[in-house]
Simulated assay, not measured.
Amino acid sequence: MMLDLLGGFGEKGRTSLAVNNGDDRILLDVGIKVGASGAEYYPALNGSVGDIDALFVSHAHEDHVGALSWLLSRGYTGPIFMTTETRDEAPATLAAYAEPEDFRRFPFPHDRVEIFEPGDTLKSGNLTVRTGRSGHVVGGVWFAVDNGKSRVAYSADVVPDSHVFVMDTIPHCDLLVFDASYGADPVSGTARAREISEWVARHPQGCLLPTPLSGRSLELIAALPGPFAIHAGMRFSLEAQIGATAALLPGVSELLRVRLASAVDWTDADPLPPLPLLADDGMGEAGPSSRLLPRADQAGFPVLLTGHLPAGSPGDLLYRAGRADWVRMPTHPTLSGNVDIWEKAGRPEALGHSCATDLLADLKSHIPSLRTQCRTGQRIMVPQGSKQ
């Protein structure tokens, strides 16, 4: 098997890779790169897309599905595999991040989607695609692709030590493509959640917490120390996520349901509340937070950013100007989590995606088989024969 690294290697964003096995070729994710423009906004998929047999989407965040309309505009006509939750969330992601003309001409293709459940094993030609829960969002998955001789496991975005979501163990493989978003950051999710809780407690007059609609929002709700508000447009999605009990750790669904039931619904017409206010998205690029960040800044309303901030994004500009704080809420693996994933996968050769090059170098001292020189645009061979 060969892998084409189409995005997310030596960079954060436009996550995408193709698995090639003779006449079989499948695409895993098709994301965009926030903050980029032109060709760099999209996966490095040069030439025709006619040889792609199937697309498998891990989850509905923009850096994994945001280029779907672009892919369709280039002539992709094959099946699109995703979970129910990813299908339900992806249209809003495309509306926010696709090129408007692409989205107008190629809206989300509901009739082309083939639904699977996390844990299902799928087929495309001579390739077998195993799936498992990612721990990152409801309906999010990792993929392990096998041709009978070798296996490559692509984690997509995972959270092995989430306090909310379940992550299934990635199987033994010959090549592990893992989520290196945080490099060798050793600080646990528990410690970060405590830091966020303490920050919120120091701002009893209210504060704004921009957050992705899926995934991190539930992690924040679990971490908040007291009453809070949500943008009213988030409630339906949050209720659906909390109701997906198979994706959540035991007992978490009921805890989150009680917390959400007591949350105050806030709308754009309301004054800023004397409560922590959750509003999507996490970068201020789209959704309610794109309107709320400048409003909070003008009013001197405290802002806490808790995730990735692409250079030049509204959240990044506010933080760099010293008018917002930042504490990472881990929604990707920290160091101990990635070492554990690698060890359970049989200590295979490894690539890190969604990570800057200097952070990859830091990781290699902990994961010796990590290939730090691989970059978007390259083709590599999957080793054979060591999987169990």
Rank of each mutant, 00 (worst) to 15 (best):
residue 137 V to Q: 08
residue 114 E to Q: 15
residue 105 R to P: 00
residue 115 I to F: 09
residue 94 L to E: 06
residue 109 P to E: 06
residue 155 S to Y: 02
residue 116 F to E: 04
residue 113 V to W: 12
residue 92 A to T: 12
residue 139 G to H: 13
residue 144 A to H: 04
residue 94 L to A: 09
residue 125 G to L: 06
residue 114 E to W: 10
residue 129 V to D: 07
residue 109 P to L: 07
residue 106 F to W: 15
residue 112 R to P: 00
residue 132 G to Q: 08
residue 151 R to C: 07
residue 111 D to R: 11
residue 135 G to I: 04
residue 134 S to L: 08
residue 127 L to Q: 12
residue 137 V to L: 12
residue 154 Y to E: 03
residue 159 V to A: 12
residue 126 N to I: 03
residue 130 R to L: 10
residue 136 H to I: 03
residue 155 S to I: 00
residue 101 E to L: 14
residue 125 G to V: 03
residue 85 E to Y: 12
residue 104 R to A: 15
residue 106 F to L: 09
residue 126 N to C: 06
residue 107 P to K: 07
residue 93 T to W: 13
residue 109 P to W: 13
residue 116 F to K: 05
residue 99 E to D: 15
residue 109 P to Y: 10
residue 149 K to L: 10
residue 88 D to W: 05
residue 133 R to I: 11
residue 150 S to L: 02
residue 95 A to V: 04
residue 100 P to H: 06
residue 112 R to V: 05
residue 100 P to S: 10
residue 148 G to M: 05
residue 161 D to F: 14
residue 150 S to Q: 14
residue 115 I to S: 05
residue 85 E to D: 14
residue 106 F to N: 12
residue 107 P to N: 07
residue 156 A to P: 03
residue 133 R to A: 07
residue 151 R to A: 03
residue 124 S to C: 14
residue 113 V to K: 06
residue 89 E to C: 02
residue 113 V to H: 09
residue 142 W to Q: 09
residue 112 R to C: 02
residue 111 D to I: 00
residue 147 N to A: 04
residue 86 T to V: 12
residue 126 N to Q: 11
residue 147 N to I: 03
residue 99 E to I: 07
residue 119 G to V: 04
residue 95 A to P: 00
residue 91 P to L: 07
residue 144 A to N: 10
residue 147 N to Y: 06
residue 93 T to N: 08
residue 85 E to R: 14
residue 141 V to H: 00
residue 154 Y to H: 14
residue 113 V to N: 04
residue 99 E to L: 12
residue 93 T to L: 12
residue 108 F to N: 02
residue 150 S to V: 03
residue 117 E to M: 13
residue 146 D to H: 13
residue 135 G to T: 03
residue 136 H to F: 15
residue 88 D to V: 01
residue 134 S to W: 11
residue 92 A to C: 00
residue 90 A to I: 01
residue 132 G to I: 01
residue 86 T to P: 08
residue 96 A to E: 13
residue 111 D to P: 00
residue 111 D to E: 15
residue 124 S to V: 13
residue 138 V to F: 06
residue 114 E to P: 00
residue 109 P to Q: 05
residue 143 F to S: 05
residue 138 V to K: 04
residue 112 R to F: 01
residue 127 L to R: 11
residue 118 P to E: 08
residue 118 P to F: 08
residue 119 G to T: 04
residue 155 S to M: 12
residue 155 S to F: 01
residue 94 L to D: 03
residue 117 E to S: 14
residue 158 V to A: 11
residue 108 F to S: 02
residue 90 A to T: 15
residue 117 E to P: 01
residue 118 P to H: 11
residue 150 S to W: 04
residue 98 A to W: 05
residue 135 G to C: 01
residue 141 V to Q: 02
residue 152 V to Y: 04
residue 89 E to S: 10
residue 84 T to N: 04
residue 89 E to A: 14
residue 111 D to Y: 01
residue 104 R to K: 14
residue 119 G to D: 03
residue 82 M to E: 05
residue 122 L to W: 06
residue 127 L to G: 09
